[in-house]
């Protein structure tokens, strides 16, 4: 699905001391599965995610998604890919405060609005929200519920890839676990990339990517290691 080759993101290009958020990064990811990207603060995890999701253009290198080179695409083409292929879950849910939970989900949708509302209702129910909560605004929902609405929004178009940037950072343990379980389920047929600094939420990932100082420090499959151990 993704082939990342020698990608660098350099800030302060004209200064003598360039800042490398990413430094010659290489990675290949499959079509499906739950991928955890972990590293300390400032290691470049979010920058990597932004580059992969076309929210930012890397300074150097190439990112190939499904055979298509992303770095050379026009803004319109990048917008199309984000709209049709990608979904996003942010650290703070970033729900629109004046929209109901249902409207927050469907505002991201493409297609017939009746169908979108049906799908939205399906996902919200799957994510544990009750019907009476569909018409509530984010201020009337808990943090965990808001994050689940954000996940439903990310899933509404059945994207091939979901990018989740610190999706459990503002959640308690129980809700964090619940959210990761949902993402894991989704990753059975799609690719879900979770960026976090908290290793404890990545216990079920299929691929672990460790970063340090803008570089790939390690990548492995925790499940296969566990199988080997067992």
């Amino acid at each position: 699905m993704f082939e990342i080759k020698n990608v660098s993101m350099i800030y302060d290009m004209n200064s003598d001391e360039k800042l490398y958020a990413l430094n010659g990064f290489n990675l290949t990811l499959p079509d499906t599965g739950l991928v955890g990207i972990i590293g300390p603060s400032g290691s470049g995890k979010s920058t990597l995610m932004y580059c992969m999701s076309t929210l930012k253009r890397p300074t150097e290198g190439s990112i190939v998604y499904d055979g298509q080179e992303l770095t050379g695409l026009s803004n319109k083409q990048r917008e199309n890919i984000r709209r049709n292929e990608f979904g996003f879950v942010f650290q703070k849910h970033y729900l629109v405060p004046y929209m109901t939970a249902m409207d927050n989900v469907t505002v991201a949708g493409i297609g017939d609005r009746k169908e979108l509302y049906k799908k939205g209702a399906e996902y919200l129910s799957l994510l544990g929200l009750k019907k009476r909560e569909f018409n509530k605004r984010p201020s009337k929902l808990s943090g965990g519920q808001c994050q689940r609405v954000a996940i439903a929004r990310a899933m509404i178009n059945n994207p091939r890839v979901i990018f989740a940037d610190e999706p459990t950072a503002s959640l308690d343990h129980e809700n964090a676990f619940r959210v990761m379980k949902i993402l894991k389920k989704y990753s059975e047929e799609r690719l879900v990339i979770v960026v976090t600094h908290d290793r404890s939420v990545l216990s079920d990932v299929d691929i672990m990517v460790e970063m340090w100082d803008g570089k790939l420090s390690n990548t492995y499959m925790p499940m296969s290691e566990r199988e080997n151990y067992e």
């Binding site: 803004n75 917008e79 709209r83 996003f88 942010f90 970033y94 629109v96 505002v107 929004r153």
Partner: peptide, 14 residues
Amino acid sequence: TYEFGVYRALGRSR
């Protein structure tokens, strides 16, 4: 601003 940032992230064009 963040509302419109989210719209952009969701693929809404400029």
